[in-house]
Amino acid sequence: MPTTDTTTVTVRIPTPLRSATDGQSTVEVDANTVDDALRTLTDRYPDLADNLYNENDDLRQFVNIYVGDEDVRFGDGPETALEPNDEISIVPSIAGGCFHRWRVNA
């Protein structure tokens, strides 16, 4: 049984953003939703904020967030709930490819 009410998940950082995460390709965070996880991430690495959020503090349209193989756009968006050991991927946009499904390489 979990002893805390938050979940530890892994966030996969794409190559173009690793200069903002001290070169880390994955970062572990404690969070219950995708939004929690990304806010925790940007608190820890403030240089990521402009890349992920617009001036209204909304997730930018071309930023693609996956939990496992699922694009959160087709689920509950930033409110998507997380399970222990879930893997969140921030995927660089390829124009023409933002809204297509693909499988995350293991």
């Binding site: 794409p14 173009p16 953003l17 200069s19 903002a20 402009d50 890349n51 992920l52 930018r60 349209q61 071309f62 930023v63 921030i90 660089p92 946009s93 390829i94 124009a95 023409g96 933002c98």
Partner: peptide, 8 residues
């Protein structure tokens, strides 16, 4: 303007 962008 940013590293993550949608400008092909």
């Amino acid at each position: 303007a940013t590293a993550m962008h949608g400008l092909e």
